[in-house]
């Protein structure tokens, strides 16, 4: 039938358009790369230094946070070093008061640059709590037993 005879032609055009489409798609994505993107300008966190060597934190913070989160959720270990809450307390931006509200905020700026998607902020607060820092030491008092 006529349609069947046309099929190879259809296939050829389809292939050509598919290739063109794919090229256009990659071209759009790579314009930024061609233009060169500046490194994100990160706001300096509160205090003098991070909880560990910055290079170490920069490379290993996903693992550190993941390890800490499992210990906190499963074992109730609530140490403050490597705790996401403490990250937020130091790195919340001065304009938004958040680590992930605007594109200049600490977490978002860098992760956008690196192209790594974050889902921490689906659940975790991006802003420090109100009564932070907690000045009063935790009393070694037993919850409700006496």
């Amino acid at each position: 039938m006529a349609i069947m005879a046309n099929l190879p032609v259809l296939g050829k055009w389809f292939r050509i358009f598919a290739c063109l489409g794919a090229m256009a798609f990659t071209a759009i994505a790579s314009t930024q790369a061609v233009a060169g993107v500046d490194l994100p300008k990160l706001e300096h966190g509160k205090g003098d230094q991070c909880v560990d060597d910055v290079a170490f934190i920069r490379r290993h913070h996903p693992d550190l946070l993941k390890h800490h989160r499992d210990e906190t959720v499963r074992l109730g270990i609530r140490t403050t070093k490597y705790s996401l809450k403490k990250c937020v307390e130091c790195h919340a931006g001065s304009k938004t008061g958040s680590v992930a509200s605007s594109e200049e905020d600490f977490c978002v700026a860098c992760h956008r640059y690196a192209g790594a998607k974050l889902d921490c902020w689906d659940c975790h607060a991006t802003k420090p709590g109100k009564q932070v820092p907690d000045a009063k030491p935790v009393l070694p008092q037993h919850g409700g037993s006496k």
Binding site: E71, L75, G76, I77, R78, T79, T80, V138, P140, Q141, H142, G143
Partner: peptide, 8 residues
């Protein structure tokens, strides 16, 4: 007593 923070 309540646990130390680093104790599970």
């Amino acid at each position: 007593q309540s646990r130390a923070p680093e104790e599970g």
